[in-house]
Write a protein that binds this DNA or RNA. Structure first.
Lengths: 182, 182
DNA sequence: CATCCAACATGATAGCGATCATGTCATTCG
DNA sequence: CGAATGACATGATCGCTATCATGTTGGATG
């Protein structure tokens, strides 16, 4: 059981019929090449979108956390371009792709909400990108602060470190240095 | 004059009336706090979305290149959350926000195309993010190849290096090493 | 053909952060 | 209340990449 209850909005799919399904660690939501018939959203746990390569190597394309939709772009594709696998036990909400598209085309409000959601996601990703393009911990922390305003409460620094792609130790040191400066 | 003609699709705005405007280096498309009345797309040059901070520091939120829409998320906001400034001379296509939204709500095809575009952008950004989260040049190049398949033609390696957040020299070395291995 | 320029290529050095180690502190739990 | 746990904190070492330097190559140009 996860102590922190995640706040996952319920009306994301505009009241469309949906079912929930539980996946064991290592379970597949879909495989590369499968025809796209459903749209998935993570309710609990984590789903990774991965692409395997010949040499056994693989890359992660998305880490979908609670509330995230898995592979939004697949909505407009005939088949999947990668695999979706659960690293840990996960609960996933599933809606029909056809039902979704029909609703999208007949309910402008819903279409607008969906587009706004995507646009916000793009925005967040772009910021994340720019932060990760910076070289030093100092620059990355500074950039993060420029957008978010203040340091999060203690207890969330580890997550912040992971988010800006830095080891917790490096982040502690940087915070310590800035404290010393002021 | 830029030698490489950029292929910028014309129907992105679904045939809506638009005007083109030229901005000098350092010119502002809009400022933080301005009411959102237009939607911008870069035709030539580069537009940066930036956020200034008290200490004179600033972060770049987006580098819009030819073909890119500037601040898609602003469509659904009342006012801008950051500044848009041209680093070099730029030509920008401008459409009315109201006209765009009206068209979006009355033409499902257009809405779907727009959503698909956003979804693809999210997909690309996520990949970019995962690549930048990797630590070594080797891993980053490997991840890039896993998605794109092959190395680009010579002459584009510098851009690849910039894209994966690595110095050109480091990329040359890594490519050289892989050549040696095979 | 001589010149020029950008990209490719590689060596040497130095800086920065990952990692490991060690310790403190606050909170939780038996 | 003592033990256990996870986050905060900081020191030491090492590896990787940025940077600077120095060539080399190939295509464009007059």
């Amino acid at each position: 059981m996860i102590a922190i209850m995640s706040f996952v909005e319920n009306d994301l799919f505009g009241g469309l019929a949906s079912q929930k399904r539980r996946f064991e660690p290592g379970g597949y939501l879909f495989h590369r090449g499968d025809p796209v018939q459903s749209l998935f959203r993570v309710v609990e746990g984590e789903v990774q979108l991965v692409r395997h390569q010949e040499a056994g190597a693989m890359i992660v394309l998305q880490r979908a956390m609670p509330g995230d939709v898995v592979a939004e772009a697949s909505l407009f594709a005939a088949s999947y371009h990668c695999d979706a696998v659960t690293r840990i036990e996960a609960i996933v909400e599933i809606v029909s792709r056809d039902a979704f598209l029909t609703h999208f085309r007949h309910a402008p409000d819903f279409a607008e909400t969906w587009a706004a959601r995507l646009a916000r996601e793009v925005q967040v990703m772009r910021l994340q990108n720019e932060i990760l393009s910076l070289k030093t911990v100092r620059e990355r922390l500074q950039a993060w602060l420029a957008w978010h305003g203040d340091l999060p409460a203690k207890g969330e620094w580890v997550q912040l470190a992971r988010q800006i792609g830095v080891s917790p130790e490096a982040l502690y040191r940087e915070i310590g240095k800035q404290r010393a400066r002021s």
